[in-house]
């Protein structure tokens, strides 16, 4: 597939990072709209963030422009599987800890994470999950006495 060089440059690492900075700048500036601005002498809550957003926006723009002129390396080899499964693993832990308790949350989180490598076999994953459940129970609940239930209210 032949792409226009400008297009290639636009999706290069440098240019995309510049666009990301611009997006953050716009987002923060937008969210600052309801904050009190004050004056330079008596600054409100919105003054400093708005100032920073402006600087960030300009920096982002310069980064994009330079990338368009200079070209750049493309983003490739994204490990979508790793990204999805590892984030899901942390999310499951965060969302499930309260209701499921430490045991099931650790097991679920371990299984999801372990599937990300595509290397571990089901039996191995199950053994790892069992080991980590036992280990975390020993260290965090028995040893350190963290106030987390082993089995949560959804299951009890």
């Amino acid at each position: 597939m032949v792409r226009h060089p400008i297009l290639t440059a636009l999706v290069s690492r440098d240019s995309l990072s510049g666009l990301m900075f611009i997006a953050f700048a716009a987002g923060f500036a937008f969210l600052s709209r309801d904050l009190s601005l004050g004056t330079a002498l008596r600054m409100g809550a919105g003054y400093f963030p708005l100032l920073l957003s402006a600087v960030l926006g300009v920096l982002g723009l310069v980064i994009v422009l330079r990338a368009l002129v200079a070209g750049g390396t493309a983003v490739e080899g994204v490990s979508w599987r790793g990204l999805a499964l590892v984030s899901a693993s942390v999310l499951v832990f965060g969302l499930g800890l309260g209701g499921l308790g430490l045991g099931p949350a650790v097991a679920g989180s371990t299984i999801l994470a372990a599937m990300a490598s595509g290397r571990a076999r089901p039996l191995g994953i199950a053994m790892l999950a069992a080991f980590l459940v036992a280990f975390t129970w020993l260290v965090f609940i028995r040893g350190l006495g963290l106030p987390i239930p082993m089995i949560g209210s959804w299951l009890a």
Binding site: F93, T110, A113, A114
Partner: peptide, 22 residues
């Protein structure tokens, strides 16, 4: 492939324990 799931789990517990916040 054995080590990193453990790191994920420990990190999650550690972060939770700072403020007891999911």
């Amino acid at each position: 492939h054995w080590l990193f799931p453990a790191i994920v789990v420990f990190s999650a517990i550690g972060v939770y324990s700072v403020n007891n916040s999911a």
